[in-house]
Amino acid sequence: MSKLDDVLTKCKDQMTKQGIEIDETLLTNVAKALGPSIYNADALVVATGDEGEMQTVKNWVTKKLGVEAGAEMDACLARCTEKIGKSNTKKLRPVFYYLITKDLGKESVFA
C-alpha cells in the first residue's frame, strides 16, 4: 500500500466515524493537491484552535479555491470545524479541506 493510500484510509475512517459522506475521487484529488506535507504526522493534522494554522488554511482556500478571506470563509471554516467535531483534536487535513471544498461548492476545482 502506498503512503497516499495509507493517508486516504485514515481519512475515510475519520469521515465514516463522523458520518461524513465520502466522494473518493474528490478526497483523493484534495489529498494529492496538498502535496507531500500530508506524509508528515504534524502537518497531516489541522489545529483549528491555532490562529497561525487557520491562517494557513485561509491562504490555501484563497489560492486553491479562489475565495477571499472574509465572512463567507469564516462561516465556512466554522461549519467545517463543527462537522468534523470541535473536540476532535486529530482533524486530518485532507478531510478538513475536503469539507471546505464541498461547503463552498468548489468541487470543480478538483475535477
Rank of each mutant, 00 (worst) to 15 (best):
M54N: 05
I84F: 13
V61H: 06
P94R: 10
T16I: 14
N59H: 08
D5W: 06
E68I: 01
E82Q: 08
G66Y: 12
K90D: 04
A75F: 00
A75H: 00
L92M: 14
R79E: 10
V46D: 02
E107G: 11
K90M: 06
C80F: 02
E21G: 03
R79W: 08
K86C: 04
S37D: 13
V7W: 07
D6G: 05
G52A: 15
T48P: 00
A75C: 00
T81C: 02
N29I: 03
N29D: 08
A71I: 10
A43T: 13
M54D: 02
E24A: 03
M1P: 14
E107I: 04
L34S: 10
E21Y: 06
Q18R: 10
M1L: 13
K58I: 02
K58W: 03
L77I: 06
G35Q: 04
V95G: 08
L8I: 12
V67A: 01
G105V: 03
V46Y: 06
V7K: 15
V109C: 15
V7S: 15
D6W: 05
R79L: 13
V61S: 08
M73N: 00
L44H: 08
E68R: 09
D23C: 09
I20P: 01
T28E: 10
Q55W: 09
V57T: 04
N59R: 15
V46F: 03
L44A: 13
E68M: 07
V57P: 08
S87W: 14
Q55N: 11
G70Y: 01
F110H: 03
T28N: 10
D5R: 06
Y97H: 10
K58V: 07
E72W: 00
V45L: 05
A43Y: 12
I22D: 00
S87Y: 09
E72F: 01
L44W: 08
L92D: 07
K91S: 13
E51W: 09
A69M: 11
N29G: 03
D5I: 05
T28G: 09
W60P: 05
E51H: 11
Q14L: 14
Y39Q: 06
G49Q: 09
K10P: 13
K10M: 13
V57Y: 14
V109M: 15
V7G: 15
L8F: 15
W60H: 13
E53S: 15
G52Y: 12
C80Y: 01
V30Y: 09
T28F: 06
K32I: 11
K64A: 15
T56P: 04
T81Q: 05
V30R: 12
T9K: 14
V109Q: 06
D5L: 06
Y39L: 11
A69F: 10
S87K: 10
I22W: 01
C76I: 01
K64C: 13
K10Y: 15
S87M: 15
S108F: 08
E68G: 01
A78Q: 07
N40Y: 07
Q18W: 14
